[in-house]
Simulated assay, not measured.
Amino acid sequence: MSDIFEEVDEALAQDKSLQIWRVVRPFVYGGVAVLVIGVGAWEFMKWQGDQSQNNEATAFYAAQTALEANDYVAAEALFSEIANSNSAYATLAGHYLAQVELSGLGDRAAAIEALDSAAGQDGPMADIALMKSAYLQANALSVEELETMLAPILDSDGMTLVYLAEELIASRAYQLGDLAEARRRFEMISFSLDASDGVKQRAQQALAALDTLAQLDGTNQTNGVTQ
């Protein structure tokens, strides 16, 4: 009798397992399908990404080739297309486009526009584009305008471009005759522990020139009083 009960229990257990399997089977199959499709989709997306990177690199190389051949019209069109796309080379293409516009086609305004567009991106190449644009526009800006333009660099944590920005502002102050402001900024650069040797050396040369001007001014004033 006990054997019969055991067989019934096993049959019921098997039947119950079968019922459970029938319930969960669609989800199991669905899960496997999703897993397979997911892996396939990932591989496809990875392949597409690789293809996209290859295409972007090919396009950039074609633009560089045109530039090296002094085909500025073609280089302008190719670099412009890359710079205005979502390509990983977009910011770098903006730098090259500015070079084409300025050196190849002699269009300073277009070069500034290309650099300003590149400066609107993220990363160090964007900051360099802003610095280049400031160099091209410095002669048309006041010290305050130049300082405002370079604020993203001046307020950043990185020291690489900060002192180049300070140097440019100091030079503009000197050019406009604001010698006190120029001296203040050049002194700050010359005493900095973070500024590069080249920037510090130029600041010291500028300070020496300011000292000479001050001496000449003092001499002229003395001669004027004597006369």
Rank of each mutant, 00 (worst) to 15 (best):
A88P: 00
A88Q: 11
A90D: 06
T91P: 05
T91W: 02
L92P: 00
G94M: 08
H95W: 14
H95Y: 06
Y96R: 13
L97C: 05
V100T: 00
E101S: 11
L102T: 04
G104N: 10
G106W: 11
D107V: 09
D107Y: 07
R108M: 11
A110M: 11
I112S: 00
E113S: 15
L115S: 03
L115Y: 06
D122V: 14
P124F: 11
P124I: 13
A126P: 04
L130M: 13
K132L: 12
S133V: 08
A134V: 09
L136G: 03
L136M: 09
L141Q: 13
S142A: 07
E144N: 12
E144W: 04
E147P: 03
E147H: 12
T148E: 15
L150F: 11
A151M: 11
I153E: 03
I153Q: 00
I153F: 06
L161P: 01
Y163K: 02
A165T: 08
A165Y: 04
E166W: 06
L168K: 01
Q175N: 11
L179D: 05
E181F: 02
A182E: 01
E187L: 10
E187H: 01
F191A: 13
F191M: 12
S192D: 06
S192N: 06
L193I: 02
L193Y: 02
D194T: 13
A195I: 00
D197G: 10
G198E: 14
A203V: 10
